[in-house]
């Protein structure tokens, strides 16, 4: 595994390996000293073209627990105002000695572009690109679901998959990178997925996806899902006529108190609720649901660090890349000795 760009091209073996590694990382996080020396001397750059404090600090915590040096780079530029080009930014980071670039970008495909353009040699981790994918979010969701499923089945989590698990993903599928990454990964792991949304928030062309489509959340809940993943919905979508009002959306597709009670009525004692955050309480999820014992929201956050540790570890702990890079670099850009990766201090 050279990069982590999407879950669509992630094999089942690689997915299970990441999840199993994440279990080991989770054990580290439970210790008093939450740090491993695995990536000492390696540099991880968080390159964020879009604000996301939650995701950035999760990657930052993951890298630091593996003893990597971390550079946070908040790039200017948006779909409206153009900043420095992705190419120039990437090459700057390469010159600084980045071993991995964790990229968050508002444009779909930017991480693929970074990984395949030949601009840099570093490992690229997609931390969410436009409405395309968010593979580490899907991995942390799968990690959370796998623990739930193992507990339901009375087994240990490591080495298992999600065979037979029924999962409903509810909300703005059209604009959700999480929904896409989740679908591919959950299917790879053997789960059955139902997408639930108003027709306006499902992409044209979804018919080929390996999932069931439903416009009716109550009907989907009656089919006894083992987990319900609620997606964030931006209230502003109603201005583009995706739905008439926040109130109508909430009534038809929100996980409200009535639906929380319905899980009990259906006798679904083990069914859990997930949300990638940040939540719009009162829109797609009620406070009672978000704070109920069924809610996995905080476990998801905690598991996010373990999964990102696993991804960085597997991408970077293989054969050392710094030797190869120091051979290719011109002397004035490599202050460190051959075989030693530049650190944050000397790579300014």
């Amino acid at each position: 595994m050279k990069h982590l760009l999407s879950t669509q091209d992630l094999s089942k073996a690689d997915a299970v390996r990441i999840l199993d590694t994440a279990e080991e990382m989770a054990a580290v996080s439970d210790r008093e000293v939450k740090k491993l020396p695995a990536l000492r001397g390696r540099t991880v750059v968080n390159l964020f073209f879009e604000d996301s404090t939650r995701t950035r600090i999760s990657f930052e915590a993951a890298a630091k627990r593996l003893s990597a040096d971390v550079i946070n780079f908040a790039a200017k530029g948006s779909s409206v105002s153009k900043g420095e080009s992705l190419k120039d930014t990437a090459q700057t980071l390469e010159a600084m000695g980045a071993d991995a670039v964790v990229i968050r970008h508002w444009a779909s495909g930017a991480p693929v572009r970074l990984a395949t353009s030949g601009w840099i040699d570093a490992a690229v981790v997609n931390a969410g690109d436009g409405t395309h994918e968010h593979p580490t979010q899907a991995l942390l969701d799968a990690f959370t679901l796998r623990r739930t499923w193992a507990r339901t089945n009375g087994t240990a989590s490591a080495g298992t998959d999600l065979s037979g698990m029924k999962i409903a993903i509810v909300g703005d599928i059209l604009h959700s990178r999480v929904a896409r990454s989740d679908l591919w990964l959950l299917r790879t792991l053997g789960a059955e997925v139902t997408m639930v949304a108003p027709p306006t928030l499902l992409p044209v062309g979804i018919d080929g996806w390996p999932c069931t489509i439903s416009y009716d959340l109550d009907e989907a809940l009656a089919k006894r899902p083992d987990a319900v993943m609620m997606l964030r919905v931006q209230a502003e979508r109603m201005n583009a006529a995706f739905f008439p009002s926040a109130r109508e959306y909430s009534r038809l597709w929100g996980f409200d108190d009535r639906r929380l009670a319905a899980l009990d009525d259906h006798g679904l004692s083990d069914t859990v609720i997930l949300h990638p955050g940040p939540m719009n309480r009162g829109l797609e999820i009620s406070s009672a649901a978000a704070d109920s014992p069924r809610s996995m929201v905080l476990q998801q956050v905690r598991n996010g660090v373990s999964v990102r540790m696993a991804a960085l570890y597997l991408l970077l702990s293989g054969e050392s890349r710094s030797t190869a890079r120091s051979q290719a670099d011109t002397p004035d850009t490599v202050p460190a000795a051959a075989g030693t990766a530049p650190t944050e201090e000397n790579a300014s």
Partner: peptide, 18 residues
């Protein structure tokens, strides 16, 4: 719009040009 709206745009997460 970024590309043809259809099966490929749905997967790539790009705004469609129907």
């Amino acid at each position: 719009a970024q590309m043809n709206e259809g099966a490929v745009s749905a997967v790539l997460g790009m705004a469609g040009w129907p």
